[in-house]
Amino acid sequence: MNETSKLKKVLEKGVFAVTAECGPPKGADPEAVTQKARLLKGHVDAVNVTDNQTAIVRMSSMAACSLLKSEGLDPVLQMVVRDRNRIALQSDVLGASAIGIRNILCLSGDHQVFGNQPQAMGVFDLDSIQFVQVVKNMRDGAKIIGGDSLTKAPELFIGAAANPFADPLSFRAVRLAKKIAAGADFIQTQCVYNLERFGKWLEMARDNGLTDRVAILGGVTPLKSVGMARYMKSKVSGMDIPDAVIKRMDGAPKDKQREEGIKICVETILQMKEMRGVKGVHIMAIEWEETVQEIAESAGLLPRPG
């Protein structure tokens, strides 16, 4: 039970890290998770499990992480502050560590109006930066909010998210610095399609010395079709898909669009590998986990360190 985070080990070794995403099922079937685990095993260093993403009710991230762990993967527990107050969040942090989860990604979460429970009360007792700080104090100081001591501190590699494409760009470095000051060990970015803007954001982070203080994992999502690209551009918040990418997908014949999407994804990874300050990639192949191996292979990221 006492093993450390594999993601942390890979990053400490200076190896370009690879993580993938696993969305839990809209049901109680454990096989849905273990199947995805088998598709990803050996091709990534860690697997990130979403927490009721887009505010749609799914199997809990904690349970899915536990299933991934029993399949021999290093899970990253996503936790959003939308659904739980500080009592529940801190309690779940302790529980996660107790069952051997070693990575956590602290997020604010998609607003409840986007999902299938729009009448839910949004909690937002903490915000994502405060949550990072709380987990850090629990881990390094064995203390919860208010100062009470823990009998045993949780062991967690702490992550946070950043969206290089959100506004205002000038303030994005300040917010990243706040996340690092709060205690983030790694940063996972929003899907990168606009490398120019990503580069600008990275440069600001570099200029402020932030890339030396945190491991930035660039996010990528392979596009399945031009329809998906258009949908993401217009409907998914915080997404920046340049027209050139849409055009490129549109230019591919219908039966070749998946291939084109993978190609774009691999090219993006190859470019990010060359960018100073990017320490790894996070591949979010939404309900398309079987493609992660191919992408990692084509981007020269296999085999993964043991």
Binding site: S108, H111, G122, D127, S128, D167, F171, R175, S237
Partner: peptide, 26 residues
């Protein structure tokens, strides 16, 4: 702020508008 953030803005702020509703300023 739709998420009551004390340390915002979140990643959903675009062109001065909140991701929750284009009628809501960030």
């Amino acid at each position: 702020c739709s998420k009551q953030l004390l340390n915002g803005p979140c990643g959903g702020s675009k062109n001065g508008v909140c991701e929750v509703d284009p009628e809501v300023p960030c």
